[in-house]
Nucleic acid binder design. Structure first.
Lengths: 189, 189
DNA sequence: GTCCATTAGTTGGAAGTCCTACTATTTTGA
DNA sequence: TCAAAATAGTAGGACTTCCAACTAATGGAC
């Protein structure tokens, strides 16, 4: 990850796209998603075209949004992955959680939690200690500095990203609703 | 990447979520997105709550969908990143494209293209040669084996993922529409 | 007609994700 | 009771993405 804002190759594409490769079939749309969908239909893969377009859209939306988030957090020295861990701890009023719970809540692999906590610990934002009731487990706790950073990062993220979603309120709601159904189908909760 | 299907920690979460940490405020929803949204509102971050929920939803949807795609492609020995390169070449009827164009179309960093093409070349699926009209540029061409794999991978992906989107046709369309507006706001095309 | 800015691509490094395999505990059950 | 199974976390490896810095070639400006 560690994606960063509108990169130079963005401009390159803008300059290039208006004149697509002449080897392509004619009449294709400029929008890359619409182009891909047309190509799918041209190949007779009609039944898959909508699914392909939706998934491709999702991938691209993720890329765009993650880049915005990461570039906003960058000056604070955290990535989104680590920010999520900080916020999980921040909301657990006890200020600490076992690794396992962090992984479960964020739905990431245990080794991803180890990785994130390693870096947070190196930065002095969290501490590890053995769980008093289960010596297999490791309790991760927010340090004062971690708590302070979590708050500062949230303030910035709210102001610069979450409150400027580039979408209407209706679209925002629709997006959450559709994805809620998707997540439910996938057994997300 | 190289995410793989429903992993063991998924079950762990399911077993755990019904009994959330008692330190949490009461009345929180089980759905992690809804939970996060409530927490945002409780903190008085109302103006950011919808944007946060939408972005968090997007991240999770991406994770779910990418995992499905990757686990489907895994038996074929390609990742989604490399599959995208193969299909780009497959659709360019000349069967070859400069690295630059690949990066522009996929909206990824030049080094990501280098990386993907390196691995495709090692696997004998593409070849590199110097562009005849610009010796700075590198033309990437599909080999017969690469073409064959692209077709096989598409068949599998269509059948196992794109034609089974876990969403109604209306939801699929709504998702694409909303994301199209998001991409347009972000200057994607 | 040179010289310099731009462009294409690669290399090396950081960070994230996952997986497999391993250790250390806890729990189960014969 | 005590051995086997399950669980929590970590180490190492594969892969992706990005960035910064570098080389090589093109093309404009003077």
């Amino acid at each position: 990850m560690d994606v960063n804002g509108p990169a130079p190759y963005d401009e390159a594409m803008v300059r290039e796209d208006p004149r697509p490769d002449p080897s392509e079939s004619p009449g294709l749309a400029f929008d890359p998603i619409e182009r891909a969908r047309s190509q799918w239909v041209e190949q007779g893969w009609d039944a898959a075209a909508d699914g392909m377009a939706a998934i491709t859209s999702l991938m691209r939306a993720h890329q765009i949004v993650l880049a915005r988030v990461e570039s906003t957090l960058k000056p604070l020295g955290v990535t989104f992955a680590r920010y999520e861990v900080l916020m999980l701890l921040w909301f657990s009023k006890r200020g600490s959680l076992p690794m396992k719970v962090i992984g479960s809540r964020l739905q990431v692999h245990p080794t991803s939690v180890t990785n994130a906590v390693d870096r947070l610990e190196d930065a002095g934002l969290v501490t590890r200690r053995s769980h008093p009731e289960d010596r297999r487990a490791v309790l991760v706790s927010l340090t004062p500095s971690g708590r302070e950073l979590a708050e500062r990062a949230t303030k910035v993220l709210n102001a610069e990203v979450f409150e400027r979603p580039e979408l209407s309120s209706e679209d925002l709601g629709a997006l959450v609703d559709v994805i809620t159904r998707l997540r439910r189908s996938a057994g997300d909760f």
